[in-house]
Design a protein around this nucleic acid. Structure first.
Lengths: 103, 103
DNA sequence: TCGCCATATCGCGATCTAACGATTTATAGG
DNA sequence: CCTATAAATCGTTAGATCGCGATATGGCGA
């Protein structure tokens, strides 16, 4: 099913420290990001805000987000010209469980 | 502490499918490997037996084992000219827990 | 000591990854 | 329309990873 988690894809996503940092920051959006006019933080954080917290180029962060999204660990929502990302808690839990089984 | 698990090292070790396969095979040594004159299977499986079950060159498997060992997910014991590897269950549990926290 | 066997290590090419700046795409607002 | 802004995509470069065969190391038995 396309709703399912790919263990391999998740592991490759999560084996990079920058991507783990992004996942970690998004765990507490209100503490880690300034509030936003367009959306409440809980609904997602826009790419620009994430870039502000990291020391890497826009294109680099965009790529990292795409990989996390591809692994379904992040969900995205487009509002106008912004893209908001938030953690997909269900997928993350599913991944942790799957890994525990495989290990 | 040198007894501790490095999350990053574990994740890189485990993000490779060959290494996951090795960990998986070692989960049930008696089912996956023929018994050995030198050591009971539970005590560890020698490199040659592992190579027999995988389709990769000796040097390649040796490297994979070294990486798993470096991450402390495998323990090794030398007996004469053989090296026996077995899962380090405690480290594996610690790793799974650590990842769950970080995620 | 010599040669054999198990494993580790070396050196190499092929492929993958991460980073960057530049460019493209899409939306918003004047 | 035209311009500005947000984000994605492209092209390149440097470094990591994976696989292999060849070679080194180290223990065993004759």
């Amino acid at each position: 099913m396309s709703n399912d988690i790919e263990l391999d894809q998740c592991l490759r996503a999560v084996s990079n420290p920058v991507r783990r940092e992004i996942l970690s920051l998004l765990k507490h959006p209100n503490e880690n990001f300034v509030p936003n006019d367009h959306l409440p933080n809980e609904e997602g954080i826009c790419v620009a805000s994430i870039i502000l917290r990291m020391k890497l180029a826009q294109s680099t962060i965009s790529k990292h987000l795409a990989i996390l999204h591809g692994a379904k660990l992040l969900a995205s929502k487009s509002v106008g010209q912004w893209t908001y990302f938030k953690r997909n808690e269900q997928a993350i839990r599913q991944f942790a469980l799957l890994l525990k089984q495989e290990l």
